[in-house]
């Protein structure tokens, strides 16, 4: 019916393993603090992306409130959903052109 003893005996081993891994990791970081740098950079990048999302969750134009009509600032972020700024013409658009437009 019950196997409670098995369950009671497993967690200490797990916790012990986890404590070992954590302590090893922490000691390595203490020994070589430069290892923090990539984590710090990724953290900062994600923080910036989060800040951008919070600042403008839907990429629309916003008024900034200078005067009654306001001044509109449009910012496009690399790696952030943006519009296509100009008409794109693929290479295949050359097919079917009247010959004198190729010159």
């Amino acid at each position: 019916m019950t196997d409670g003893r098995d369950h009671q005996s497993n967690p200490p081993e797990f916790r012990r393993g986890q404590r070992n891994s954590l302590s090893v990791a922490l000691s390595r970081l203490r020994y070589d603090p430069v290892l923090f740098v990539p984590f710090l950079l990724v953290g900062l990048l994600l923080a910036v992306v989060d800040w951008l999302h919070r600042r403008d969750p839907i990429p629309t134009l916003e008024r900034t409130g200078l005067g009654t009509d306001g001044v509109n600032i449009q910012i496009e972020y690399v790696g952030y959903p943006t519009g296509i700024g100009q008409t794109l013409r693929p290479l295949e658009s050359l097919i079917g052109l009247e010959p004198h437009y190729l010159g």
């Binding site: 296509i84 100009q86 008409t87 013409r89 693929p90 658009s93």
Partner: peptide
């Protein structure tokens, strides 16, 4: 040769 252009869009 189907698509000639793709205009500004979102």
């Amino acid at each position: 040769g189907t698509e000639r252009w793709h205009s500004p869009g979102q």
